[in-house]
């Protein structure tokens, strides 16, 4: 059962009856709960009368929506062209090795980190680049990773 729905109800109230609300509603709901799970989506569907299938369809279409819980810190590995030609893959390998993530896994069991690839962070002159939460690290070499990760608990 979904708990602490006061803020969520206020959010639904704010958007109720307006056009094109689904994406901003889901964005703000995700901010409240960290991710969009099935319960949350069914709750939104019941309150807004938007079919659950439509909500699920939108939530799975856009990469920003997360259906699983995320780690406390999100590491974004830039997969832009400039980063690719600057061998960002070696940075990603170093990250996966340090975080002990197998291919296909993205979150550490202790929920400390989630590792994701993003299209382009737009800091191409600093390639290869990663971003942890809202801090950008550029001109990286695989050896830098251990020191950077140590800053986060």
């Amino acid at each position: 059962m979904l708990e602490n729905t006061d803020k969520l109800d206020a959010l639904i109230q704010k958007y109720q009856g307006k056009d094109g609300i689904l994406i901003p509603l889901l964005q703000e709901a995700q901010e409240l709960y960290g991710h969009l799970n099935k319960e949350l989506m069914l709750y939104l569907s019941a309150r807004t009368e938007i079919p659950a299938a439509e909500i699920f369809g939108v939530a799975t279409f856009y990469s920003m929506f997360k259906l699983k819980a995320q780690g406390r810190h999100v590491i974004k590995v830039c997969k832009g062209t400039a980063c690719h030609v600057s061998d960002v893959d070696s940075i990603k390998l170093a990250l996966m090795e340090q975080l002990k993530l197998a291919p296909g896994e993205d979150t550490t069991p202790d929920m400390r980190f989630t590792l994701v690839e993003v299209a382009c962070l737009g800091c191409c002159s600093l390639a290869p680049v990663i971003m942890i939460d809202d801090k950008t690290y550029g001109k990286l070499a695989p050896e830098d990773i251990v020191g950077i990760l140590a800053k986060y608990t």
Partner: peptide, 25 residues
């Protein structure tokens, strides 16, 4: 209007569907 992470939304009809709150197809 903030996008939600879908490259195809740069296409104009997809972009408008996204503003309308739908999948950007």
């Amino acid at each position: 209007k903030e996008g939600a992470g879908a490259f195809v939304c740069g296409e104009e009809t997809a972009l408008m569907h996204s503003i309308e709150g739908m999948r950007g197809m």
